[in-house]
């Protein structure tokens, strides 16, 4: 008879085991805030489709204190999402070579963060031109 009796350790609470896992759960948690923001925008589009009264009510709602607090949290989580997204990117992309040399992970992350900065500034520029230039 075999005396073997392999012991399988439980997985419950595994994410508390290591700081690396805690960080992972936090950055996965940003998804909930992205979801909330999608919901907020969806509400806006639906109100816009209902006419002026609904839209104005929506804008007043977005300007209310609870929503400002919520949006501040969403803003912070979006930033954290962007940071962690580009931090893991070197691991998710196929290795790239420039001039025969492997592009370092830190370079890829820096390029991603730089790209986000450029895209964001560009987006703000476009919105600013559309609202300040065009409307007047």
């Amino acid at each position: 008879m075999s005396a073997r009796k392999p012991y399988v350790r439980p997985m419950a609470g595994w994410w508390r085991r290591d700081p690396f896992f805690v960080e992972y759960m936090v950055h996965e948690g940003t998804a909930f805030f992205v979801w909330l923001y999608a919901l907020e925008l969806l509400a806006g589009v639906l109100c816009l489709a209902q006419g002026k009264a609904a839209w104005d009510a929506y804008r007043a709602f977005v300007a209310s204190v609870p929503l400002l607090i919520l949006n501040a949290a969403i803003f912070a989580m979006m930033l954290y999402h962007g940071y962690t997204w580009f931090k893991i990117m070197p691991r998710t992309l196929p290795p790239m070579k420039v001039g025969g040399k492997r592009v370092a992970g830190a370079t890829i992350t820096a390029l991603g963060l730089g790209g986000a900065l450029v895209a964001s500034v560009l987006l703000f520029g476009i919105v600013w031109m559309l609202t300040s230039g065009g409307a007047q």
Binding site: Y37, N71, F75, L79, H81, A119, S120, F124
Partner: peptide, 24 residues
């Protein structure tokens, strides 16, 4: 979201109250 998520929140929720964009 990583590229423009944060900026979108800034624009839709805070740009007007902060005076970064015109009130209308």
């Amino acid at each position: 979201a990583a590229l423009i998520g944060a900026m979108l929140v800034l624009i839709t929720a805070f740009a007007v109250p902060l005076g970064l964009l015109p009130a209308d």
